[in-house]
Write a protein that binds this DNA or RNA. Sequence first.
RNA 1: GUGGGUAUAGCUUAGUUGGUUAAAGCGCCAGUUUGUGGCACUGGAGACCGUGGGUUCGAAUCCCAUUAUCCACCCCA
Length: 438
Amino acid sequence: MQLLTKAPRGTQDILPKDSYKWQFIENIMLNQAELFGFSEIRTPVFEHTELFSRSVGEDTDVVQKEMYTFNDKGGRSITLRPEGTAGAVRAMLEHGLYNESLPVKMSYITLCYRYEKPQSGRWREFTQFGVEMFGASSAAADAEVICLAKTLFDRLGLSNISLEINSIGCPKCRAKYYEALKKYFEGYKSELCETCLSRLDRNPMRILDCKSLICSKIAENAPAVLDFICADCKEHFEKLKEYLDAVSIEYTVNPKIVRGLDYYTRTVFEFVSKDKNTLGLVCGGGGRYDGLVEELGGKPTPALGFGLGIGRILLAMESQGIEIPKTNVCDVYIASIGDAASLFAFNLTRLLRESSFIAEYDTIGRGLKAQMKYADKIGAKFTLVLGDDEIASKKAKIKNMKTGDLLEINLDKNFLTEFFKIHAEAENEKIFKNFSQK
RNA sequence: GUGGGUAUAGCUUAGUUGGUUAAAGCGCCAGUUUGUGGCACUGGAGACCGUGGGUUCGAAUCCCAUUAUCCACCCCA
């Protein structure tokens, strides 16, 4: 296929027939966040490159090789956001939101960009839902964010998603950990790859997830974080577990979680799919990043957050056979025969739409039979047929497409009231049927 | 970044050891006489067989390259 008619690699078109699924998920996300007191924030798709290299971390894969970076016409280095947190923190600082009552709680749904090799559940452009919380240092806040994520999965009907938590300590205890790591890796100085050698001084923890076979083998026996965290961090971690236990949220402690972004401190967590089709899929992740606000020039402010990829959620839902209800079903299709009827039909649809009914009429000049077929195909609940006779007599037949029943309806000022009634009766029937089945 | 698979109508695929105008199902459009969909029947449109080279009298089929795509590893959402 030609380049012209081909979407760029790793991007995804969401077609009209599928968009309701995304809307369904996104509505639940934002609504659930609202129930927890998080309000939506919208920030730009692109930011100054510096923001991401400072927050995400110079030594991360994301910054080193996955960012879409370019110079704009004013010579500024600009980057399409690879994740949502940095922009949220920047906006929080820029608008002084920390001056309002704490905690500051925000949610967002944004497109993110990473130049990676695409595969199942991984795109170069992807939609991320996330929440961020500023000014809360207690483990209760960690529990709150984890609980929010957990209830999202529940509301979407997802099962087989397990929560894994870990603590990677604060800067104080991490210094000790770094020292131990350095000591350990220095023994293998001659074997480590070039990038890891440069990481050795700045961020030895990154060596733990180096891709090189040699480095990863060496890393296998490296000291573990949990053995080095300080008393405060340990207490925080224990408190978090207590909170999770209190609401019966199940979790496993996984000491291997070292998140790929540098800003994390203390609590880190991931939601991982245990389903056989989507096994290992990371359905969401997050943690605490108490040092980031200061790093970006603000006052020291405890902070934490969580993010998930909507595309991955949809993948998991589809593999579990979860049906997403269709919302945009045509209430009434108005078939017309002749020019006069077409004009009349146009006017009727306008009336119906003003009363929030989804109404359509023929706009490509098809015959009656073809119009009926079309009405059937789009799943119209009712079809009204208009011709010269109906216009003259001000009376028409309206067909219930499910039952096939034909009813008479007046085309005068009573039209809307009558349609409301007919429509409501059919809906009633459906609801009652569901009700008596249960 | 490393490794593996695949590329034929909008979609799912067939195409036998290379052999004339490249098939089928679904979908789309139109009909099956009068103004009512679903079912059935009939017909129609729609493919430079991913692209570029090569082998051959002859290539969708064999070879090479390239691109795209999918999957796994890694990492991540």
